[in-house]
Amino acid sequence: KRPMNAFMVWAKDERRKILQAFPDMHNSNISKILGSRWKSMSNQEKQPYYEEQARLSKIHLEKYPNYK
């Protein structure tokens, strides 16, 4: 399994927050909201998630050096 990208790292927690506020919301609607919110974020706001992506990718590479 591939490591999560920056959007997926961010969306994991955000999806949970949306589901708590709107438990009956369909997954497709949540995904649209998440995509819209991510697009509206500045690069500075996204930076911690890109850093986490890099950390996860490094761990993945160490654990699975032959993964293609």
Rank of each mutant, 00 (worst) to 15 (best):
K1D: 13
K1A: 12
K1H: 08
K1C: 09
K1M: 15
K1T: 11
K1Q: 05
K1F: 08
R2K: 15
R2P: 13
R2M: 12
R2Q: 07
R2N: 14
P3W: 07
P3C: 02
P3Q: 10
P3I: 04
P3L: 07
P3Y: 11
M4P: 12
M4V: 10
M4I: 10
M4E: 13
N5F: 01
N5P: 05
N5Y: 01
A6Y: 02
A6L: 00
A6D: 04
F7M: 04
F7E: 03
M8N: 14
M8C: 12
M8K: 13
M8V: 06
V9H: 02
V9E: 05
V9A: 07
W10Y: 08
A11E: 09
A11M: 04
K12W: 04
K12N: 10
K12R: 12
K12P: 04
K12D: 08
K12L: 07
D13V: 04
D13N: 05
D13P: 06
E14G: 02
E14M: 15
E14L: 15
R15S: 06
R15C: 10
R16N: 12
R16H: 12
R16Y: 08
R16Q: 12
K17G: 03
K17P: 00
K17E: 04
K17F: 01
I18N: 02
I18A: 00
L19D: 04
L19I: 12
L19P: 02
Q20G: 07
Q20K: 13
A21V: 06
A21C: 08
A21Q: 15
A21N: 13
A21R: 12
A21M: 10
F22Y: 14
F22T: 12
P23L: 01
P23I: 00
P23E: 05
D24G: 11
D24E: 10
D24I: 01
D24F: 06
M25T: 07
M25A: 08
M25H: 02
M25G: 02
M25D: 03
H26W: 09
H26A: 13
N27H: 12
N27S: 14
N27V: 12
N27I: 10
N27Y: 11
N27M: 14
N27L: 11
S28D: 14
S28I: 09
S28L: 07
N29L: 13
N29Y: 09
N29P: 01
N29H: 13
I30H: 00
I30M: 05
I30C: 02
S31L: 10
S31K: 15
S31G: 06
K32C: 07
K32G: 06
I33C: 02
I33P: 00
I33M: 07
I33W: 09
I33R: 07
L34Y: 00
L34F: 03
L34I: 04
L34K: 00
G35P: 03
R37S: 05
W38T: 00
W38R: 05
W38Y: 00
W38L: 00
K39E: 03
K39S: 07
S40V: 08
S40N: 12
M41S: 03
M41Y: 01
M41E: 03
M41C: 05
M41N: 03
M41W: 02
S42P: 03
S42N: 07
S42D: 08
S42A: 01
N43K: 15
N43L: 11
Q44Y: 09
Q44M: 13
Q44G: 08
Q44W: 04
E45A: 06
E45W: 01
E45H: 03
E45M: 07
K46D: 02
K46E: 01
K46L: 04
Q47W: 05
Q47C: 03
Q47L: 11
P48G: 06
P48A: 07
P48M: 07
P48C: 04
Y49W: 08
Y49Q: 12
Y49E: 01
Y50Q: 07
Y50V: 09
E51V: 09
E51N: 07
E51P: 04
E51Y: 04
E51S: 04
E51G: 04
E51K: 08
E52V: 05
E52C: 02
E52H: 03
Q53G: 08
Q53I: 13
Q53N: 08
A54E: 12
A54F: 06
A54V: 08
A54P: 03
A54C: 05
R55E: 06
R55K: 05
R55N: 09
R55Y: 05
L56W: 06
L56S: 07
L56Y: 04
S57A: 14
S57K: 06
K58T: 12
K58A: 12
K58D: 14
I59P: 10
I59R: 10
I59V: 14
I59K: 14
I59N: 13
I59M: 14
H60P: 10
H60L: 04
H60A: 12
H60T: 13
H60M: 05
L61K: 13
L61V: 11
L61M: 14
L61Y: 11
L61I: 11
L61R: 13
E62C: 05
E62V: 06
E62G: 08
E62P: 05
E62K: 09
E62L: 07
K63T: 11
K63D: 13
K63R: 09
K63N: 12
K63A: 12
K63I: 08
Y64N: 15
Y64M: 14
Y64K: 15
P65G: 12
P65S: 13
P65M: 10
P65N: 13
P65F: 07
N66L: 09
N66W: 06
N66R: 08
N66Q: 07
N66A: 09
N66Y: 07
N66P: 11
N66V: 09
Y67M: 13
Y67C: 13
Y67S: 14
Y67N: 15
Y67E: 15
K68C: 13
K68L: 06
